[in-house]
Amino acid sequence: MSSCSPSSAERTATGTSVHPAGWMLAPLSPAWATTSSTPGWKSPVSPIASARQADGAEGRSPMTHRLVLWDVDGTLLSTGPVGRQALEVGTAEVAGLSEVPHVSMSGKTDPQIVAEILAVAGTSPEESAALIPAALGVAERWLAEGRPRIVAEGFVQPGVPEVLEALSATHGVRQTLLTGNVEPNAFVKVDAFGLAPFFDFAIGAYGSDHPDRECLVPMALERVARLRSDRFGADEAWIIGDTVNDLRCARAAGAHCVLVATGREGIGNLGRLEPDHLLDDLSDTSTVLDILLG
Rank of each mutant, 00 (worst) to 15 (best):
R147Y: 08
E116W: 06
D230E: 15
P218F: 07
A92C: 01
S128I: 00
H19G: 12
L136Q: 00
M219G: 09
D276W: 07
H256S: 00
Q53D: 12
T285R: 08
I150P: 11
A21M: 02
H171Y: 13
P125A: 08
D290K: 14
C257V: 14
R228P: 12
G90L: 03
E162V: 07
V288R: 01
T287H: 10
A134N: 10
K189E: 10
G59H: 13
C4Y: 10
I48A: 15
L164S: 06
G96C: 01
G172Y: 00
R11Q: 13
S106M: 12
V244E: 14
D280Y: 11
V224A: 09
R141S: 13
P184Q: 06
M1A: 10
G254W: 15
S46F: 03
W23E: 02
R223T: 14
S7F: 15
P101K: 01
L97K: 03
G74S: 00
W41D: 14
E126R: 04
T285Q: 11
S36K: 08
A250D: 05
E165F: 05
I117N: 00
N181S: 11
S7M: 15
R231N: 14
A135V: 04
E274T: 13
A220C: 04
S2A: 13
A237L: 02
V45G: 15
I113Y: 02
M63C: 12
V288Q: 01
S286H: 13
H102Y: 07
F187A: 12
T34W: 13
P148H: 08
L167N: 06
V173W: 04
E10Y: 15
D281F: 10
T123D: 05
E93R: 03
G146R: 07
C4D: 10
V160A: 05
I267V: 14
